[in-house]
Design a protein around this nucleic acid. Sequence first.
DNA 1: GCCCAGGTGGGTA
DNA 2: TACCCACATGGG
Length: 233
Amino acid sequence: MQTEPTNRRLNGIYRKLSEHFGPQYWWPGETPFEIMAGAVLTQSTAWHNAAKAISNLKDAGSLNPAVIRRLPVVKLAGLIRPCGYFNTKARKLQALAIWLGQMCGDNISLLSDVSTAVLRHSLLDVYGVGPETADSILLYGLRRPVFVIDAYTRRIAARLGIIPSSGRGYDDYQRLFTANTEPDAAMYNEFHALLVKQAKSACRKVPRCCQCCLLNGCPTGKTGGGKEPVHEP
DNA sequence: GCCCAGGTGGGTA
DNA sequence: TACCCACATGGG
């Protein structure tokens, strides 16, 4: 039976993962817009494929909201082909670039005057931006203290018995994490990265592995080493 | 060659 | 509201 308060459990999980894996250095990207674009390009796709798409955009001098807005969709889709769903993602990328132009004239520093809640609401209205992508943009691109909930986070939390009483949706998990942690963008960045690292590096080649071996003493637990930080989301 | 990864939008019941 | 499917690639 679990009696330890959720805030202490989450704090303990963060400490344990942090000590084991070390800093993760998320999210790679030279500019906030590169991180924003990466959040769209990596949807339902392995990061290294999204990285190829970003590399193509850079090589073409197109990793820029103004350029993306005026690029023909077909041309844009061709550049981001390696990350999959390229036709859909080309339209999403343009929608994001249009949003950025409307919000701040592509001057991201001007967004510092806009509250996180307003930005999130506004982002969720952009085609192709759902809650996870919006929160990735807010946390990693704009350094706002927003906890990103993804499939790995939900899976690990659920398997550790950390389940929202309000439901199983994205917002339910986010409220749970937010209510039980300090609102610290740097910590949220690390915590989310560490949860993904744990899920990916656990004994996932073992059928039906819990993917949270380090955290619950799974007998199959051959948790991957954490010496080398991963520079990928 | 098949299966899996998995966020979002859109359609349907 | 809940569920299903399309979107597309690359690695195992």
